[in-house]
Design a protein around this nucleic acid. Sequence first.
DNA 1: GCGGACTGCTTACCT
DNA 2: ACAGGTAAGCAGTCCGCG
Length: 884
Amino acid sequence: MSEQDSLDRFLGEEVKPSEVEAKDSSSDWFERLKKILDERSAPAVKFSRAYLLSASYDGDLRCAVLKFYDPAENRILLWYDTTGHTPYCFTNLTPEELQALPEISGRENVEGFEVVEKHNPLTDSPIKVTKILARDPLTIGGRPSSLRERLPKAREDAKVWEADIKYHENYLYDLGFEIGMPYTLREGETLPKPDVGEAKLPSGLEEALKGEDEDFRNYTAEWVRLLECPVPSFKFASLDIEVEAPSLDRIPNAREALYPVIAVSVVDSEGRKRVLLLRRQGVEEGSAELDENVELEFYDDEVSLLGATLEILTHYPIIVTFNGDDFDLRYLWHRAQRLGFPKGVIPIDMGRESALLTLGIHIDLYKFFFNRAIQVYAFDQKYRENTLEDVASAILGVGKLPIGKNVSELSYRELAAYCLRDAELTYQLAALEGCLTLKLILALARVSRMPVEDVSRQGVSAWIKSMMYYEHRRRNLLIPSQSEILAFKGYTTTQPVIKGKKYRGAVVIEPKSGVNFNVVVLDFASLYPSIIKRWNLSYESVRCPHPECRENRIPETPHWVCRRKRGITSLIIGSLRDLRVKWYKVKAKDKSLPQEVRSWYDVVQRTLKVVLNAAYGVFGAEHFVLYCPPVAEATASIGRYAITKTIEKAQQLGIEVIYGDTDSVFLRNPTEEQIAELVNWSERELGMELDVDKVYRYTVFSSRKKNYVGVYPDGSVDIKGLTGKKRNTPEFLKRAFSEAVGILSTVESKEAFSTAREKIKAIVKECYERLKGRRYPLEDLAFTIVLGKDVEDYEKTTPQHVKAVKALPAEAREKIGAGSVIRFVKVRRDPGVKLLFQASPEEIDLEKYVEHIQSTFEPLLEALEIDFDEILGVPKTSRLERFL
DNA sequence: GCGGACTGCTTACCT
DNA sequence: ACAGGTAAGCAGTCCGCG
């Protein structure tokens, strides 16, 4: 039972008593499940070497419980705390004051007080605080009567610290447990013993870090110990359920669980594929094709089907689902209770936002793949939407089986095929590239110090928070509250470019319109993490309390930074940066290493990228626990300083800079010597690594920022920002645009441009002619836009895609909401838009589409000095004349 | 009552 | 529930215009 669960019981997510009569088999199933749970929960590990994957809180036993993965037995071992560690928080009230408080005295949930000395990072001085020990986590926080809520009201200046840290995290931090690492478990011993590897820098890295101080090197070595530790191969299964739904459009409500579960499919890492089916009246066998090795199991009643399913949940150490938190496992939990299963025999720990497994680990891939940072940095934005179908087709190249009818109308074999397909896709998402996804989660867990269940469900700010908390505990630092940080140093002074933002961000250099050959792009390797490292940025080091640091100023701001102590963030992010840039990125590309080794290096490299890219942003995010705007402001400010100085230096060296954005500069035809000089200057003067990122045969810039085409020597092409590449652009424009880019990729010299220009003109002309001749099918004309929120939530304006949806009758609109993809075309009449499937070719607004042809090609045409009207065969003056 | 200049909203993108 | 900066298209508002 998790602490979340105890909380939910407190908040009362109750299920109505059984409405469906239990059959004979039910008590057998209840007993069987009870027995499994009892056996497996008993802390009876004789001896085992196992990996720590997770921790939670057992509300009944009132203690922390650790989940280990035993690779020999392929199962999860539970270890219940025997140290007597209890929940706690800190306060500035003395034990005497506390004793006198009505909200404390006589509370049997408060076990005692202890005065302890901690170090306050904000004041850089020791601080005596009272540690309040509690009987359970809810005494500390989580309900209105908790100490976290009540103590601050006891006295005007009363403070509470560290009361919002989940108990199982406290437990891990305090005992120094390392998630993802191997331990030896022995019956009778108080604690599992870590199988500690050596914290030593590999010689290549040792060399690369020669210039760093000893603390930094030791700290980096600790990361190496964590990340070089081997990863076991996991036995796991994916699971998917189908429910007899009354209508095709409605997804059954998992909290009500009104309808029977009719199919459950399970695909496991040992090649087994099972589909459990419920026998129902009038359903035919059917003839849909199924793989030979698929095991079909029929159950005469739903209790047996659910009983078997719940047993499967106890059988596997790891279960992956796609949206199991909100649907599959939640549905099973509520449905099982509806069928009379007592809560105690259901091996699911149901929380408000997650569904965890009592005897295993549940990874919900929906949450993980939906995470923006994972989408962008780990999977290179290969997928855009967040349906299983979209993610799978983008990453795996296969789609969901199309069904035209309600699942309850399918034959057994059709239903099995459909249900199995979803489980297979889910399995593949976890298993692809040698279990990349699972390894990514494990590496993230090691770095963030978070249980794998949490790390796969939460975002970057939670990961970084966890890393920081771990480090605070290790150094006996009091974790300041958000309001304290803000009170000490919560202001910014730079003017943002965009209204409503908190401070000024990166600079973007005005590009020079036109075509340039031999363009070298230099960029700072991990600019912001490098800045955080080099400039010692951290919430406690920026605007530190020492008077002597005050002249150590940050450019363009009134802020200063500490000279006396290395900031925590600077150390953590700085070491991870060096580790990625100087070790893992290099190793991931080292062809002399065996494939499996290289792939792990690639996993780590990607993991670090995700964490590093977020490290700066979180300090500027209000909801981050260590929110510290001057840190974010300082980072961006130093970034502007670095790129601006670099451009000045380049110009001094006689290099023409044609563009730059945040951390990059585009140099026109520089010599090797010029590049080397600039790179050395940066190393020397800025203390930052400036590298050649890419070399283009030529680039095409319009006057627009963040928009360009770059052609590599081998003819491959980078297209950045241009309308012709955007997902919402109609297909006919994307195709014409990509044809034009195809022409560009063949251009090898300045001379070849004259023919290329003619070909591009011809492409635009052809596009125009086909449009005018209405020779494009309607769907090629459709704009594809994702609804950012539910239709009713557009209050200030009604954008076109919303207008198009609003034209639908209410019942058709029901299943359209935030995240839905809207396809519409522009028409001549009334609201000017129509959903694609409602429109007909004659009503298309051709004039509008001609404007779109123009705006799509304009950036290219401008760079190539081609006039759009001229292409259409209109004399240059005609538009003006028409106007006059 | 209409249209241009302007601001703001929305989406998709870049780093 | 990481940040800010840019482009594009449209919605909505204000104001002048006899």
